[in-house]
Design a protein around this nucleic acid. Structure first.
Lengths: 226, 226
DNA sequence: ATTTTATGTCACCTGATTGTAATATTTCTG
DNA sequence: CAGAAATATTACAATCAGGTGACATAAAAT
């Protein structure tokens, strides 16, 4: 999957250079001239690395990173700075930097350092898939199977995605349009009837004798799990 | 737990300075004047970080690291070097460096960079280059061999890396994206289908008669052991 | 430099999955 | 209860995911 890099630099020329360079190297780049909206973005997007100028209009970059670290946001940070004194560099590391480059920097070296930092930090992100439960159904999203009353049933990708959504939204009716958007994602021109069939197939898997009523049909609307 | 740092520098004065500095900072330090016994040490001890001079008597430091990386030894490395040209620095990163400091260096900055690298890599490289077992498979990572029911089978680099990852994550499904990142590392533009072929070849090696089911395919997701 | 080995890619095959359309059944309304 | 609308069921074709063997290139060994 593409890696996402957030860049903050108040010099528009430098920012554009960084954006261009990183995009050319295949990264997804979000560039900002100040830190105003950075918190929101971090809350909403998956960011793998932050490149940050130190001298920003609103706040000193390393102070901002120190604040992030204090909020337990441990995304790797590489500082870019015109200041190259030992003291400046050391204080940046103390505030949570992963690397520090002084301007003017060689873009190739920057790319290599970016890569090096990502290599170390990424593998740390072993996503732990949480499993969901509903009544006597235990959905294992890792193995894509359900355990129902000590019976293991394996699901297909589609079935697993459907069941996950239903369990996550238990008590809420999910209409076909919503299901198509969430489960079938970008696929174009999928008929709403397709949902009916998919639900039917899922029902058959998790309740072959058809006496459990895990999934309820809400006529005229969609489906739900009680 | 105390962290173990291996230092290689052919200048005895520098080596002693590094040993003293790092020990004072609470690390366990193993110092060497050349790379002769490094491989053995790596095989026996848990090493968390390597500090390496580039100009060594027996081999250029970055070439040595490149060799280690090619053997799937991914312990973080910080280079120390008198050479400060862009080309030198870039080539070091290309060969697998995590950071690069030019001599003469500020010891405090060195300590901070050491700390930064260790912070990122810690959870990852906790294990010694150890041998792993799974059922009746014993994987020897140093010799790149498996012993299966008293049969020695030699593996390729790729096969060993794959099998290592699978065994380490037994019970967990590893998807193709994850495998590409961990096993194929930085290589760009590798097709996900390539994983299928690699797994197939590994299966063939460790289970020629194809009746053991060591590696299970989870359709739509990836592969797992157990 | 030559030979061998390792590895990525491709084409093809198989079986599983899934969308669709045709048909049956249920549910709702009057 | 009849008729219409919604949903369930079934069958079938298209697609897809993964396995397999062949081949070309890259890497390693000699």
């Amino acid at each position: 999957m593409q890696e996402h890099i957030l860049v903050v630099d108040d010099d528009n020329d430098v920012l554009e250079l960084l954006e261009y360079t990183l995009r050319s190297a295949g990264y997804d780049v979000l560039g900002f001239l100040n830190t105003k909206h950075v918190r929101e973005v971090l809350a909403q997007e998956r960011i793998d690395l932050i490149l940050m100028d130190r001298s920003l209009p609103d706040i000193e970059g390393s102070l901002y990173v120190e604040m992030l670290r204090s909020k337990n946001i441990n995304i790797p940070v590489i500082f870019l700075s015109g200041k190259d004194s030992q003291e400046e560099i050391k204080s940046a590391f103390l505030k949570g930097a992963d690397d520090y480059m002084t301007k003017p920097f060689d873009v190739e070296e920057l790319l290599l350092r970016v890569k090096a930092v990502l290599r170390r930090s990424n593998s740390q992100t072993k996503e732990v898939v949480q499993n969901l439960e509903y009544k006597d159904i235990a959905l294992d999203l890792n193995l894509q199977k359900v355990r129902i009353q000590d019976q293991d049933v394996s699901l297909t990708k589609l079935e697993a995605a459907l069941l996950k959504l239903l369990i996550q939204n238990r008590g809420r009716v999910l209409d076909r349009e919503y299901l198509l958007k969430k489960v079938w994602k970008n696929s174009q021109n999928i008929h709403q009837k397709t949902v009916n069939v998919a639900i039917k197939r899922l029902k058959e898997k998790i309740d072959p004798s058809n006496n459990k009523e895990y999934i309820k049909t809400i006529r005229g609307v969609g489906y739900m799990m009680a």
